[in-house]
Amino acid sequence: MISRSFFRAIALLVNMLPFAVFAQDSNPEMADTMRSNGKIYVVLACVLMVLAGLIAFLFVVEKRLSKLEKENQVIK
């Protein structure tokens, strides 16, 4: 005859099953692109920002120079 405590143990295990299933899935899919390949994409993004800043600066200088050239009628 199977004891009551055996059923209790089974019931407990069945109840734990969903947790066990979740615990196995410790690698949920996330937006990990920036962390892949040794985080090289972070470096790439940094360099692109520096380049963008450099180009933005060039545009500011271009704008100011064009204005001065227009005011002083300097031929390009």
Binding site: I40, V47, K63
Partner: peptide, 25 residues
């Protein structure tokens, strides 16, 4: 946006291309 010569745009595009593929190519 100030008007700039075409070759300056070429420079910008080539540099972005070279940086992206320079790291990932």
């Amino acid at each position: 946006m100030p008007k700039i010569s075409w070759w300056k745009w070429v420079s910008i595009l080539l540099l972005i291309y070279a940086v992206v593929l320079g790291f990932l190519g």
